[in-house]
Design a protein around this nucleic acid. Structure first.
Lengths: 346, 346
DNA sequence: ATTCAGGATGGCAGCGCTGCCAACAGCCAA
DNA sequence: TTGGCTGTTGGCAGCGCTGCCATCCTGAAT
């Protein structure tokens, strides 16, 4: 006998991390059966007589047995973990995508393991490695742009990968998102179609939020096709989005260019800030100035004048991404349509 | 020899989940050393000569080796996983707390494993069990109210637990949060102090969001001490918070009671909705009607009239909770002070 | 020269579970 | 009665890594 005859079920629990807990063999002994049988019952997999099943279930309950999935995962070589890499948790977009993802994962019995990159590619690379070391069954990553090593890991890790939010670029495996370039184009077409010509831009850091950059690029492209340019722009100093940045940005922009007839914002948060600035300063909307955002946030349609914006299907995107990941299937790109909301600010 | 002489490093990766990947022994063989030595180098633990160290690091890089922490965790009986159970990801509060938590955890090399209960105690119970099965080093749970079995698991799981957000009640182990009861009292004292007497309430479902219920209770208590009551109330049908709920709620409330001089909201989202309703309908604030929220959201201080509200230290709370969890220490309750923001709507 | 502390390494037994196989009923058809 | 056969069950070898111990090799001390 290589092991001592094993102590009683579970000592009260040691003070330090990861204390000694009840194991499968405790349950097996208590129920008077073999370990394999307990395993079969607990996973509901394989045939076991009703009597034994009940005996085992009772023993497990008595001992407050909680299976050790670390061991299970190692033994079976298939985990119920899904890695998720996102750029931030602060803004409104990501939590909604996560909600969609989570709904699907939980129904399928998967646990998300999350990493937040703060829009830093190096940090993202580390996170991907770190998450892969938990041997997840799949990986959900925001965006298409990664360091070369990160792409290499995503390609070679042996599990399926879904890149979310964006479809403008080459994906590693599966891709679910919207075209930000097309959204920018649609925004410009809409504003130009309504007769606006003297347009400014207020955005946040497009070097870190590449999707905002793609929208701006699409927007500029359409303007250029009409021989127009964005007359002036202002970048919010804040990392990520913020209502305050929009408020300050619009103030600064209008200070320099009093002749603008419309402002395109990199997102709704900034646009709402701009809207508040106008309300406070008696700038009539859309008479004097039109505003156009991006995201289609709930709050943006509930302001006294609903914001003109583009709604991205965030929850649906999260759901699709998770479903695709779990389903497997061939590498593909899913283009989730966005919706232009005319609103009342343009 | 019990195993075949082992295939080359790593076949291109099979199509199915969890493919064959490079292992420690591959690296060891490639570097011409023993497994223990590789393990020592990779964990930077124990003494290894510089030459061997470099040889091993090179071999690991060549093979794109990613350690298997599932195996490592099982062997060492200590995981770098922290479980997190939250009621939702949709609203603004939780993501900010998570951001604080995450900042601390990542610096310490921990990965969060997240579960979302949707304010459902049964679901929370299942989640706790499910997350415990990953044998985390600690658990962060939102709120103090859990099913009896859930409390039992939290107490007996052998790892440290921090309950976040709320301190009004008995905790299982460590507790970090604010007193919602006190926040409600402070709100009422403030409004009564400013002379408001005819007060209504607009809230969301306080049966699922118990913290909102505690605020209301504190608020009512102070009013009762002055011989006053909340004249009328309206509950948003939406699960959780929503600007729209506030807008509709205020409309309905004012429709019934035109004589209110102030409205207390269960949170800022609802209050902002109420604010928008008033702006749209020419109700002057705070002259005709005062508004008071809870949370201290960024957007609430940027509206043309900054909202009167109470700011909870969300990021700091997340950080403290995570730090306390990792530090260990004795069971204790940390009361994070909130701040009453007078604003301009009362 | 001999001894010895200590650095540098490899070997090996598990961690708790799963997957596979063997073993052993009962049970019906031949 | 003799085979299969299906339904149940236990045994046992790993999964990839870590922790501990044994071993070997230096250089310094005696």
């Amino acid at each position: 006998m290589s092991r001592a005859p094993d102590d009683p079920p579970a000592p009260p629990a040691k003070g330090d991390l990861h204390a000694m807990v009840t194991t499968l063999s405790h349950v097996a002994r208590r129920a008077g059966v073999g370990q394999s049988t307990v395993s079969r019952v607990l996973r509901n997999h394989g045939s076991v007589s009703q009597a034994t099943r009940e005996k085992i279930l009772k023993a497990a309950a008595d001992l407050h047995y909680v299976p050790n999935r670390i061991a299970g995962t190692l033994a079976s070589m298939t985990s119920k973990l899904v890695g998720i890499v996102i750029p931030s948790v602060g803004n409104t977009v990501v939590p909604e995508v996560l909600a969609g993802v989570n709904a699907v994962l939980e129904d399928a019995g998967f646990q998300p393991v999350i990493g937040v990159s703060n829009y830093d590619p190096q940090r993202e690379e580390m996170l991907i490695e770190s998450i892969l070391s938990w041997r997840p069954s799949g990986l959900l990553v925001a965006g298409l742009e990664h360091t070369e090593r990160a792409r290499g890991m995503l390609k070679g890790c042996g599990v399926r990968v879904v890149e979310m939010l964006d479809i403008d670029g080459a994906g590693v495996d599966m891709v679910v998102g919207t075209s930000h370039h097309a959204a920018g184009r649609a925004s410009a077409q809409y504003l130009l179609g309504r007769g606006y010509r003297r347009i400014g831009y207020v955005g946040h850091d497009i070097r870190s939020d590449l999707r905002a950059g793609k929208r701006l690029e699409g927007f500029r492209q359409v303007m250029a096709e009409q021989g127009l340019v964005i007359l002036d722009h202002e970048f919010s100093p804040h990392r990520g989005s913020s209502v305050e940045g929009g408020k300050i940005g619009v103030a600064a922009l209008l200070d320099r260019r009093k002749d603008l007839d419309a402002i395109y914002f990199s997102n709704d948060d900034l646009a709402i800030g701009g809207y508040f600035h106008c309300v406070e300063n008696g700038i009539s909307i859309p008479g004097q100035l039109a505003l156009f955002g991006y995201n289609g946030l709930d709050i943006a349609r509930l302001t006294p004048q609903p914001l003109s914006t583009i709604r991205s299907p965030r929850i649906a995107m999260g759901k699709s991404a998770a479903e695709l990941l779990l389903a497997g299937g061939p590498a593909q790109v899913v283009d989730m349509a966005f919706e232009l909301i005319p609103g009342a600010t343009s």
